[in-house]
Design a protein around this nucleic acid. Structure first.
Lengths: 117, 117
DNA sequence: TTGACATATTCTCATATCGGCATATAATGA
DNA sequence: TCATTATATGCCGATATGAGAATATGTCAA
């Protein structure tokens, strides 16, 4: 076995820098593949392959327009990542520092009133 | 070339489900390796290897305690992921829906006052 | 020192992955 | 129909990766 979970989830899809670049490009709006090819400086087949991975995890969607395929972002697919990483936000967010201070204060007051051993 | 960027960044480190599990365990506080072995049901060497990857990207830190190594979380290392994915929050967050509504409103009003062609 | 325990490292194997290249598919236009 | 344009797919080679098993390293206790 190489990797238990294959590329079929958002975390893996986004682990590849080129794919993040693609999503960043698409954040500006719908784009045909060749636009992305130019923007990334990658060969067209590689871009198509990255787009496929992104499609498979639902991070992008396609629309046919003549001979072009217009790709657009579907940010919802990234929500699981956001949700997961959010639980660690405590580590750097000032808001949580303040919350921690309040909780410490509460804990101290509660401790004063306690009578168990 | 296989993968341009190797595991040496947070995105890659976290792409592996077992490693996310490890971080989730450590969120509860400092733990020795064997605790994690039991919690994950993985073999000890694999856990040590995953811990190494996490250490290399700074997501965990170690402290020696007798023959044990106590690992603890360093959530800061995950901030880049949070920052990146945050820009896509618009896709699912109600707050942004409301913001969008306000911006549309402003745009409409501005449009009324315009005089160019 | 010897032995038990805790953890890290090394080696091997199977597989996933990425890029490069050639080619297939499909739409458009002459 | 044939050429051109736009995109997708398939195959190849190099490499990364993860699990398993064996072993090395380090610490403590007797």
């Amino acid at each position: 076995m190489a990797r238990a979970a294959t590329t079929a989830d958002a975390f893996n899809a986004v682990a590849e820098p080129r794919r993040r670049q693609i999503l960043d490009e698409l954040a500006g709006g719908e784009r045909p593949v060749n636009d992305l090819v130019r923007a990334l400086g990658l060969a067209q087949p590689q871009v198509s392959k990255h787009l496929r991975v992104l499609r498979e995890v639902g991070a992008v969607e396609v629309r046919e327009h003549g001979r072009q395929r217009l790709y657009r972002l579907n940010g919802e697919a990234l929500k699981p990542i956001h949700d997961w990483v959010k639980t660690y936000e405590r580590a750097w967010s000032e808001r949580f520092d303040e919350l921690d201070a309040v909780l410490d204060e509460l804990k101290r007051e509660e401790g004063n009133g306690r009578d168990d051993g």
